[in-house]
Nucleic acid binder design. Structure first.
Length: 295
DNA sequence: ATTCTTACA
DNA sequence: TGTAAGGA
């Protein structure tokens, strides 16, 4: 009738939550329509996960069903967030991640995550005189791991946290900063790359992609031709002749080509749910092997 | 056959 | 919630 077991009805009765409207001569509980309605109300609330004490406060009119519904829905939101997070951690652990590390990094707030990045920025950019536009652009990167990160996003955050705390990576970026500082002191424009330089980069990646697809070895004569073509574009972008001048220019820039720096951007995009950054590490590795240092 | 109370795990 | 007991 009410969907409740005899047992629980008795329990409600004993607890005084819903007293029977009357008893028969032999002590049987009887419930009139009003009490019956109360039983159904409590059953529904219990089914929706509302605890008995608050169900009782609904009966006594201390709170309305509307209020209880809102509060409880909010509570479920919170539970779902932690459950989603737990699931993401466990899925990542199931795929072989380290549990303590996963859990610790997943539980962090956005602010705590940002601290890790800011520490990194301070270490690798702070001591150097860099192009202000460049530095503020690098420092403006924010980490916003969603409440319900996918396994991939969580893994990306773990990898990023490891990366920016890795002393070898930091040393590499510091070398870039030192070189950047030096070039700036020498009057080089170290702000945003020109359109020509970006085009030259795009061209490099396309050429290398085609070479990789065609199975051209980096040490083959064909690779030599490709590097010559790529260098011609770079020479144009830098505004220098495609000769020793360009070689010098490329040499000055080559310290910027740590593949992990690109990985950094790939990970940031994944964590923040940005459109995926194309991973050109394979193309760049081919170009480096072929003797073209900058790409 | 079902419900009742009390009590313990 | 399951179980027991003895009554109604």
């Amino acid at each position: 009738m009410t969907g409740l077991t005899v047992r629980t009805i008795r329990f409600y009765s004993d607890q005084g939550i819903i007293p029977p409207s009357a008893r028969t001569h032999s002590g049987y509980r009887t419930y009139d329509v009003e009490a019956l309605a109360k039983l159904k109300l409590v059953r529904t609330l219990r089914e929706l996960g509302v605890d008995l004490p608050t169900a009782q406060r609904v009966l006594t009119r201390e709170v309305t069903v509307t209020e209880v519904a809102r509060v409880h829905a909010d509570a479920i939101d919170a539970q779902m967030r932690t459950l989603r997070l737990r699931r993401a951690v466990l899925r990542a652990v199931a795929k072989g991640g380290e549990m303590e590390l996963m859990n610790e990094l997943a539980r962090m707030t956005d602010e705590e995550r940002q601290r890790i990045l800011d520490d990194f920025f301070e270490d690798v950019f702070g001591p150097y005189e860099l192009d202000p536009g460049f530095e503020s652009h690098m420092r403006s990167v924010r980490i916003e791991l969603p409440d319900d990160p996918s396994t991939e996003q969580l893994e990306a955050w773990v990898e990023l946290a490891k990366l920016v705390q890795d002393n070898d990576f930091r040393a590499s970026i510091k070398r870039m900063s030192a070189r950047h500082e030096q070039m700036r002191a020498d009057g080089e424009n170290m702000g945003a790359p020109s359109q020509g330089q970006m085009d030259a980069f795009t061209n490099s990646v396309q050429e290398a992609r085609a070479a990789l697809d065609a199975g051209i070895a980096p040490d083959s004569p064909q690779a030599r031709e490709i590097v010559d073509r790529v260098n011609a574009k770079w020479a144009e972008a830098f505004g220098v002749p495609n000769d020793e001048h360009l070689r010098e220019k490329l040499f000055l820039h080559q310290d910027f080509a740590d593949p992990r720096a690109e990985r950094y951007w790939v990970l940031i995009a994944k964590i923040n749910g940005w459109p995926p950054v194309p991973d050109t590490s394979a193309e760049r590795a081919w170009l480096r092997a072929a003797g073209q240092p900058l790409a």
